[in-house]
């Protein structure tokens, strides 16, 4: 893979500070985060819970405005949610329960007025076939398993052919076996179309397996700790575990100190 660091990035995040209000507090989720996503990147936002990675993804999605810095997609500032940044969420209830699988995938194509009904249907069926759910095209979401629902959500996101696909821990609520299968499927889908994806996870193995580039964030508030290249798909087990160790020590160096001190206090 050639990395086009010289080319203008597809997505540019520059000095983004994000804050949100809870009932009693003003919380700073991320502090001056910078990163660039190139076309066909599988860009991972990795960090422990509370590092603001999901908040960052929501900001890229246009659901939040940074109080400092800017987010640009193809040079245009992101101001509101839009179908050029399709999101895949973690929750299984992200499919519209009143529409069948087919209609769910078609819905954004039709709602944005992008395609006439017939073309939208063909496109939807094409992507449903890609996630191996052709036999379930007329099922309602409540009859599907969690993994199938996530596959529909991915098909729905991909069918829109967005500039960038935003995935917010899409496999976190799946069981371990299904999760592993979904990761493989996502990679083979990527091989087929080379879409750009921004993927949030807190699992280091998942980040290494899925990502081509990994951004490490530190917690409270999220700041960039490192931006690393991941390993090729056919990397050796020892290389993978070495990178895992390295990332782990970078991310959890502080956290381990914290737990040991608290243990001392309670002991």
């Amino acid at each position: 893979m050639n990395n086009g660091t010289t080319a203008a990035p597809l997505l540019a995040v520059r000095g983004v500070t994000l804050q949100y209000k809870t009932k009693d507090h003003l919380v700073t989720a991320t502090y001056r985060v910078d990163f660039d996503v190139q076309r066909s990147d599988r860009f991972i936002l990795l960090g422990p819970s509370g590092c603001g990675k999901s908040t960052l993804l929501k900001a890229v999605g246009g659901y939040m405005k940074p109080i400092e810095g800017e987010i640009r997609l193809k040079g245009e500032a992101v101001t509101r949610p839009g179908p050029d940044r399709m999101m895949v969420f973690q929750e299984f209830d992200q499919l519209l329960p009143w529409r069948t699988v087919k209609e769910n995938v078609m819905f954004p194509l039709r709602a944005t007025g992008r395609l006439p009904r017939k073309v939208a249907l063909e496109k939807a069926m094409e992507y449903i076939a890609k996630v191996n759910l052709t036999g379930f095209a007329d099922n309602y979401p409540h009859t599907l398993s969690g993994g199938m629902k996530q596959r529909v959500a991915i098909a729905r996101g991909m069918a829109m052919e967005p500039d960038i696909l935003l995935m917010d821990e899409p496999f976190a609520a799946l069981d371990a076996l299904t999760r592993r299968k979904m990761q493989d499927e996502l990679l083979s889908l990527w091989e087929g179309t080379r879409f750009t994806v921004l993927f949030v996870t807190h699992s280091i193995p998942e980040a290494i397996k899925i990502g081509s580039r990994i951004l490490l964030l530190s917690p409270h508030p999220g700041q960039v700790k490192a931006e690393l290249d991941s390993l090729p798909v056919d990397a050796s087990a020892s290389a993978i575990s070495a990178l895992e160790q390295r990332i782990h020590s970078m991310l959890f160096a502080d956290a381990i100190e914290e737990t040991t001190t608290t243990e001392k206090v309670t002991a």
């Binding site: 999605g61 399709m86 999101m87 929750e91 519209l96 009143w98 709602a111």
Partner: peptide, 29 residues
């Protein structure tokens, strides 16, 4: 109506009346 569904609707660029008609009403049915 769950926050996820609201975000899905806004992701499609739906706002105002189309958002109410195509997301909120069926979800709250």
């Amino acid at each position: 109506v769950s926050n996820t569904l609201r975000m899905v609707g806004r992701n499609y660029g739906l706002r105002g009346l189309p958002y109410v008609a195509r997301i909120l009403i069926p979800a709250a049915f």
